[in-house]
Design a binder for these strands. Structure first.
Lengths: 121, 121
DNA sequence: CCGAATCCGTTCCGATACTG
DNA sequence: CAGTATCGGAACGGATTCGG
């Protein structure tokens, strides 16, 4: 049936557009953790142990520029900066969860294949 | 409620795992076009005008190594190579379509905002 | 605590030329 | 037709240092 047949998408293809926004090395993870609610910069770092602060800052800025993440700065000492999803970012919830569910199935199948010869079922 | 709360995913996070597989610069597009069925190398190039042959080859090889795409070589003159989704790759259909639908909504909203001041409704 | 700035190696990616 | 080989610039990304 192919309802989406022969869709020419040289520029502005929806699939690529979405992946450009969330496909960065850490963006998916950032967005995923922000689904739960507002997080401080340091909290995000704890949730994503392997990210450097430079990369986290940079990707958060890009997500902010895309209108997906809101950055709230409090003029306090010590400083506090909180990140949360914008209304636009909230619409990504089902997208992120779809990625998560597929990834779980994929990883599960990988593991099963690897242990298949070792486990006597 | 946050059913997915405090999910620590330093290594092997499902969200990142999925994005690692489909998040390459052209992979989403390749997979999207293969949803319609088998395509030859040259046909894929026509569908994705901006990709260089080098990049297309490279990404197809990675998708093949991931077990998402099947590569069928025919020993003919002139040569013919056909690409299609594996059973594993077929399971990505709803993922890709979710990305597409969100992207359409996102791009649509972008356009509406930009033309809002220029168009008299 | 949050982040900017610099340095520097690695990877990406386009252009081009060549092959079975 | 469907690649492979090589090159060079651009972008990515980590470590470290400094600042409000």
């Amino acid at each position: 049936m192919a309802r989406h047949k022969t869709y020419e998408c040289s520029a502005g293809c929806p699939v690529s557009a979405t992946l450009d926004l969330i496909g960065g090395k850490w963006k998916g993870l950032i967005l995923y953790h922000l689904l739960d609610g507002t997080l401080r910069f340091g909290e995000l770092r704890k949730h994503i142990p392997d990210v450097t602060q430079r990369m986290l800052t940079q990707h958060l800025r890009e997500l902010e520029a895309s209108g997906l993440v809101h950055r709230q700065v409090y003029a306090e000492v010590p400083p506090r900066v909180e990140y949360s999803l914008t209304a636009q970012g909230q619409t990504l919830r089902e997208v992120i969860l779809t990625l998560k569910h597929w990834g779980e199935a994929y990883l599960g199948q990988k593991n099963r294949k690897r242990t298949l010869t070792a486990v006597a079922r």
